[in-house]
Design a protein around this nucleic acid. Structure first.
Lengths: 197, 197
DNA sequence: AAACGATTGAAACAGCTGTTAAAACTGTTT
DNA sequence: AAACAGTTTTAACAGCTGTTTCAATCGTTT
C-alpha cells in the first residue's frame, strides 16, 4: 500500500515537474507517508523512477506484439502501430516528455540504460514490419530504415511539444483530438509516399 | 574579457553536464574568475544561458536569410537549408541536446520562452520556402506544413541522439560524416516524395 | 502473553545550491 | 593628487538536497 502510494505520487510529480526538480519530501507529502519510507521501499530516488518505467511499459509491448503477429498487410500493420503509439503518447504526454528529457541527460547514465531498453523494443517492432514489407515487395528497398523510424518517433516527440506548448510555434491552442488525427494522417501519407513503391 | 571567459566556460559545462547540474562555482573555476562575477555580469545563472543562446543563434539566422533571399528554386533552397541545419546541429550536438532538454522542462518557463524564440525563427524560414514552393506550384498544397517542418526538426534531433548514443539503438559507432550524409539524403528524398507534386 | 521481524516516524546529518552585501582594488578623468 | 565609476574579492546568507540513524509501532507467529 505504501509502495503504491509512493509510486502514484512520484509519477504525478515526475510528470509535472521532472525527475530532478521533484524532491523526495514532495513525493512523501503527496503520498501521505514519511520521507524515509521512499528509501526504505525503493533504495533510492533513482531506483524509484526505474521501477516506475518498468511497470508502465509492460502493457504497450503486449499490444505491439499483437499487431506484429496479426495477419494484416504491412501497410495495415504500420497504420495500426502508428495509431497505438499516438494513442499512448498523447494520453501520457507529460510522462513521455519526462522520459525523453531524462533519456537525453548525461547525468545518471545507468538509469538512462534502464529507460532506453523499453523504447528500443518499440523501434524493433516497427523495424520488423518494414522489413516484412520489403520482403513482400510492397515497400521500396532503397530507404534508410533506421532514419525512417527515427523520423516517426522524432515527429511524435515534436507533436507532444506542440500539444501543450503551442505558444512556441505561434499557434492557437489546439484540441488534442484534432492534433492526433492530423499527426496520424500526416504520418500515414508521409510513410506511404516514402515507403510504398 | 571576464564576460567572454565566463560564457566560454559556461557553454562547455552546460553542454557536457546540462544547465541545472552545472553549478556557478564550476563555471567560475573553469573560467578562472570569482563566483560573484557571474551574477555581476549576467544578473543570474538563467540570464547567462539566455545570453549564450542569443549570441550563438545570431550567425545561423544570417546564413538562413541569405538562402531565403537567393534566386534559387524552392527545392534548391530547401536542400541548402537542410545542409545548413545538419552542419550546425552536428557540429554542436551537445549544445542542441542541451537546448532541447532545457526547452522541454516545465521549470523556468521565462527562460524557456527566451530560448524558444530563436528556434522559432528557424522554423519560420523553412515555412517561407515551402509556402513559396506552393505558390510557384512546384509543391503540393494538401500537406500539413507545420507537421512537415516538425518532421524535419524531429529527425534532426533524433539524429543527434543516434550520433553519440548508438548503444540505445544497438548500432556500431558511426562516423558523424557518414551519418550526416545519410540524414541529408534521407531528408531530401523524404521531402521530395512528400512535397513535390 | 511473549517474541519476532517488518514497517514507520522524528530528527538530524553533511553537503551543496544561487545569490548578495560590503570592502578592496583597478584604471581613467578631473 | 583627488575623485570617480567600473570590477573584483571575501565572506556569508538562507535554504534546500538525498540519505541515514535509531527508537517506536504494527501485525503475525510462537
Amino acid at each position: 500500500m505504501t509502495r503504491e502510494k509512493i509510486l502514484t505520487a512520484a509519477k504525478e510529480l515526475f510528470q509535472a515537474k521532472g525527475f530532478e526538480p521533484t524532491t523526495v519530501r514532495e513525493i512523501a507529502t503527496l503520498a501521505g507517508v514519511n520521507v524515509a519510507l521512499i528509501n526504505y521501499h525503493f533504495g533510492s530516488k533513482e531506483q524509484l523512477l526505474a521501477q516506475m518505467v518498468e511497470e508502465t511499459t509492460a502493457h504497450t509491448l503486449l499490444r505491439l506484439s499483437d499487431i506484429t503477429k496479426s495477419g494484416a498487410s504491412p501497410i495495415e500493420k504500420l497504420n495500426q502501430m502508428l495509431e497505438l503509439f499516438i494513442e499512448k503518447i498523447f494520453s501520457n504526454k507529460q510522462y513521455y516528455q519526462m522520459i525523453h528529457r531524462e533519456l537525453s541527460t548525461p547525468q545518471r547514465p545507468e538509469l538512462n540504460d534502464q529507460i532506453g531498453k523499453p523504447l528500443k523494443r518499440n523501434r524493433d517492432e516497427m523495424l520488423k514490419i518494414i522489413e516484412e514489407g520489403q520482403k513482400k515487395k510492397v515497400f521500396r528497398k532503397d530507404v534508410d530504415i533506421d532514419l525512417t523510424i527515427s523520423t516517426v518517433f522524432g515527429l511524435l516527440y515534436q507533436a507532444t511539444h506542440i500539444a501543450f506548448k503551442n505558444k512556441v510555434y505561434d499557434k492557437q491552442l489546439q484540441d488534442d483530438a484534432i492534433l492526433k488525427t492530423r499527426v496520424l494522417k500526416h504520418l500515414q501519407e508521409l510513410l506511404k509516399n516514402h515507403l510504398v513503391r
